[in-house]
Design a protein around this nucleic acid. Sequence first.
DNA 1: CTGTTAGCGCTTTCAT
DNA 2: ATGAAAGCGCTAACAG
Lengths: 335, 335
Amino acid sequence: MVVRIRDVAQLAGVSVGTVSNVLNRPDEVSPESVERVSRAIDELGYVRNDAARQLRAGISTTVGFVVLNSQNPFYNDVVRGAQDEAAAHGIAILYGDADEDFARQKLYLDLFQQQQVRGVLLAPYGDVLADLRRLRRSGIATVLVDRFSADSEFSSVSLDSVAGGRLAMEHLIETGRRRVAFVGGPFQLRQVSDRLAGARVAAEDAGMPIDLEVVPTEGMLLEDGLEAGERILARPKRQRPDALIAANDLIAIGLMQALTVDGRLLVPHEMALIGFDDIPFAAAAAVPLTSIRQPGRQIGRTALRTVLEEVEDPTSLPRQTVFPPELVVRRSTAG
Amino acid sequence: MVVRIRDVAQLAGVSVGTVSNVLNRPDEVSPESVERVSRAIDELGYVRNDAARQLRAGISTTVGFVVLNSQNPFYNDVVRGAQDEAAAHGIAILYGDADEDFARQKLYLDLFQQQQVRGVLLAPYGDVLADLRRLRRSGIATVLVDRFSADSEFSSVSLDSVAGGRLAMEHLIETGRRRVAFVGGPFQLRQVSDRLAGARVAAEDAGMPIDLEVVPTEGMLLEDGLEAGERILARPKRQRPDALIAANDLIAIGLMQALTVDGRLLVPHEMALIGFDDIPFAAAAAVPLTSIRQPGRQIGRTALRTVLEEVEDPTSLPRQTVFPPELVVRRSTAG
DNA sequence: CTGTTAGCGCTTTCAT
DNA sequence: ATGAAAGCGCTAACAG
């Protein structure tokens, strides 16, 4: 039923070693053998057994990817990028959604460890240092995604979130806003606190008094934005900010829905709104949403490449790749 | 550096066989041994090597999942459901996005075959029968997701799309619409043609003349909806339908954006709009979107369970699980 | 209940 | 350039 390498060898009239060589170093085999073996492989429909290959050669053909929360379409993009690069290397991606749950994140890391994956990509939730060190001790390299590795102990591929926050705030100031609220959370998420920090820097550098308050949310999903929007609407008009920076587009879209329902508030007239990530839905929002774009696909590609290189050369030092943010202006912040 | 089973055996003062038994059938081992071995495992941080396990026992701890197009958040839900169920069995998911590309879909199926996955879940693009038969011949079971297996050759877990289409049309008729356009494509996608078929049935059963035209799109993404929306707007007012059924929410949201930009058309007043899937963004759209909900998470869970059962008992017959659609009424179709 | 051991399918020396 | 054979880490069959 299932074809093994020795069936191929038999049909081709060579030894299993030769078949293996055809598969792995065809240049060290006579063209004639390559030809015969290839034909036999086709004829029998042979597919090599990665478990055996991995066991013997000690090299896996999978890479694990754990994301914070797959409900954010931004991570789809990152995963897509990783898949693109992986496919080019014949590598498959083991995928886990931590769903902002520490135990689940650990579960996947454990699972991936026993799969002996080639490497791990992780858009982390909370403090994962201990888990990553354990992985490293067992010989598995990790690359952090969407988060800068401050201590430089691991490689990372991320956006310059501080610069992104600054960009957002500068844009609001330029378009005449003076009372800004940053909506997001939890602040243990590095991306969130960095984006806020960037906004703060820009507010301080503005050369004029800028109000910057924080409206915290529990998570980073649509419903968190909705809920925060209602809190803001509940205030008397004059105590409301005139612009909102949301920690991501999901929150921003939730905010927009809460604010604009029944025409209660005009965006951008009464309230400007800016998000993060530039997911496809940002442009399709009720009022097209200004956003700080992250190159998700490229982040994914780069992360995968980085982890492979790290495995290739284990003496290589951890390296931080940081991409610049890009401001995409749409109607939600129009002057 | 890396701990093997014999290191554990040595530390615990037992044989490797006993350690293996503790791992796989603890009830056949004396409690004392279980205790000693467990302690040794903890102490050494032993993690079992799945490649070796798989090679020897012939049983894999991964399941492959290939989706049509990961840009549709609906599939996130399905994948999440599959992950939930998989995690409960200590199984990890190999994930591939076919991105509506036949070659890519095949690439992932090949990759999964050489990984010798326990089974494959597939939200298919186009005709995959040949590939699935090849997988089956190599001993890998496949379950189709989000598509009914008409020939009953494979198991499937899906929504009753025909009923969904009917539900959508009936709702429009009830709320007074008479000139409906179905917007979607490509029609080779079974989900699309089924949804249209359902709408057609409802139109014919209405007991009054109902116009049903088709506005074809190339794909199922936001931009396809946008583009179709512009085509519709380009027509003279009286040649426009008074309601649209979109083949999925992405198209619906694209349509909404195109139609409502600059207040060109009022939804639902001048044009009712209904989508499919009920993704989180449907409720958050400019005008909250009426949609036919699919229980994505449950579909994923069921699909995973089905494929595991099929592996467990290879003599079991293919089985079709069909979930009923649910109409979720929001403002976009308000009377 | 425990220990010994064959062997899963492959890659990789080492001879030839 | 090719073949023979060892052995990766584990499970399961068997003997005790």
